[in-house]
Design a binder for these strands. Structure first.
Lengths: 204, 204, 204, 204
DNA sequence: GACTAAGCGAGACGGTACGTCGCGTCTTAAA
DNA sequence: TTTAAGACGCGACGTACCGTCTCGCTTAGTC
């Protein structure tokens, strides 16, 4: 029992550092961005030794990703709204809002280059964000197929890319605004291609 | 005439360093990527003083961008193929090929974070790549409108984002393949929404 | 006790770098002089990072001064030789020897311009060398006054300047030799003015 | 005749640069000292190409010395004042004034290290300043010997060093003031040793 | 009065060293 | 045993001047 309580105490102690580090990271990400983030700065702000940071995360990028992941874990299931259009708009707009209005947009911009450079990082992002979004799109599409709104041979992966690609394109490359209208317009542009009864443009 | 030849001679001298630097950069980008690129390394490889590099480019990122831009200046006008589908596929596939098969893909991955961090860099990319692609899409769409293939109230910017967003999404985030089929499938997914006679999904 | 041994261990570790740096500096001062001394070179020779050098000394001049000070800390008290003449000759000759025969002469030549340019450096030299020599001259003069050899109203500062000024004048400006005779002749030239019973030349 | 006038005109053109460079050097010596002096800065201030500076002086130190020498060429002969004391005070005080009140003090401080490092520089200083002062001291002493004021076996070199050593010692090392009293007190301390009828302290 | 070469301004260049930053590792003392 | 504290080796940064080197322009002085 004392061992257990010790463990508990130890965990708490460990968590105190961990929480302090994450909080410091979050603050510094807001203040100076991923680019300006330094392990040294995080440790100082958290009142923690650099070694303690390194013991838990391999690099400032992993640290930034950890913070980013905590924010995006809000990818919640979209309730049944009765029609696929509203559901997709709701879902896509969730991403638009997070990327456009919160810290996450800047963090994403700062981290994206690291996804390619650092295998672990990219994998973590794909597994925890990309694949979850894909899964949710799949769920919504399948529900819509059952409703008869959407063709049954739809390529979910492609749809998912068509929905989110433009969002990230604006965030990362074109500098376009991430506003409410965006989600709606993207969804409206994609739907005609997957509506039940619609034909592939090619077949036309 | 003597003025011209003098200019040429002068240019040649100036260019000798410039060319050497760009070539060294290209080699190093292949070997170590944007992340591993250092001004020091470029200067050494080019047989040039560090100061000479800094005299022409403010940072290794600008240098990398310069190399990248030389590669993408191949965004050439798509000839009239008689139908918008083939034209768009040709155009989009140009980007897919460059990003998927050449150095440019890796360079893009490495630079994208800097577009947000460095105003000049982002501006240069937007003005020299994004806006040129947008202009070409506009040209193609307008031609298609004249042909009666496409609705006349199409939002060109959005179409452009729908076409290229998924490409970059794969390159930067999902890790999906950039293959020949990609361009075709994206175009076929986008066309239904802009075909003449098509209705907004919403109106349905 | 454990605290002490710990302190000692800690000192040893810290000192390892410090000693290596000072030794490298000493060697390089001999080889290339103050002028040719570079922090980069010192660090390389000492097998130490440049930052480690900068952590301890602000500039190569401070470093050179540190070496110089270790050498001149030999300004030891002159024993009672029974007469002021022998005592002063002994004392002045100490400086002549160090400046003429050891590295210190060259280091002094190299550093002297920095004493004026760098407040800290000049202050360190004045406090650790000049004032110690002045104090020793004062002690000797006072002893001689007690013996009745020297007038009691002697201006010790001036005497000190008359004794050492010519030495440095040779070292730095005239290029004259620093030999054994020098100390003797300077002392013999200065003594008549301060002998008990002597009168100021003016009073004559 | 045309050749001559050509030479003259050419000289004038050459002199225009030379004068501009020296004037710029003088200004910059006042503003930033020898330490802060750069060939680049001098050329810019003089509105002259760097090459033009290098064509005339080998280094910024030679340039600084050139300026310094123009200022000290005022070492003029001391008139016969009837007694050696007043003559020496006048002479020594000339140096005290120049070193204490004009730019020359700071320039000397900045150049002195270069006298040892640069053979040409040291030689120029010794030949144009030191030896001229020595010659003047010799002239004064010889006149005083004829007057019967001073012993005939005086070591002029030593006297010269005793007179000027303390001045430079203050300027360069001790930081003591260079005021009117200094010349007088040094002379009064040195004279007893060389007065006619005086004996070497040793002989006592 | 046109021609030519010498001298010049301008400034790019290769180079050395600067002093700084942050990395990730390692050591120590305290808890 | 874990931690805070922080020194360390390291690599690269971007800067300052160095002294050398073209490059055309200006400008005498010659033909």
């Amino acid at each position: 029992m004392s061992a257990i309580s010790a463990k508990v105490r130890s965990d708490r102690r460990a968590n105190r550092s961990e929480v302090a580090i994450l909080e410091a990271t979050r603050e510094l990400l807001i203040e100076v961005g991923v680019r300006g983030l330094t392990v040294e700065g995080v440790a100082a702000r958290a009142g923690v030794a650099k070694t303690t940071v390194y013991r838990r995360w391999r690099s400032k990028e992993e640290l930034a990703l950890a913070v980013l992941l905590t924010m995006v874990k809000e990818i919640v299931a979209v309730p049944d709204l009765g029609n696929i259009r509203d559901e997709l708009i709701t879902f896509v707009n969730g991403a638009v809002r997070i990327l456009g209005k919160t810290l996450m947009g800047r963090v994403m911009q700062g981290l994206v280059s690291d996804f390619a450079a650092n295998e672990d990082l990219g994998k973590a992002f794909r597994e925890q964000i990309v694949s979850m979004r894909l899964a949710e799109v799949r769920r919504l599409i399948e529900r819509a197929i059952e409703r008869g709104e959407v063709r049954s041979d739809v390529d979910v992966v492609l749809v998912h890319e068509l929905l989110f690609g433009p969002i990230y394109y604006r965030l990362l490359l074109s500098g376009g605004k991430l506003d409410r209208r965006l989600a709606e317009r993207v969804v409206d542009a994609v739907l005609p291609g997957i509506r039940a009864g619609a034909r592939y443009s090619r077949a036309r």
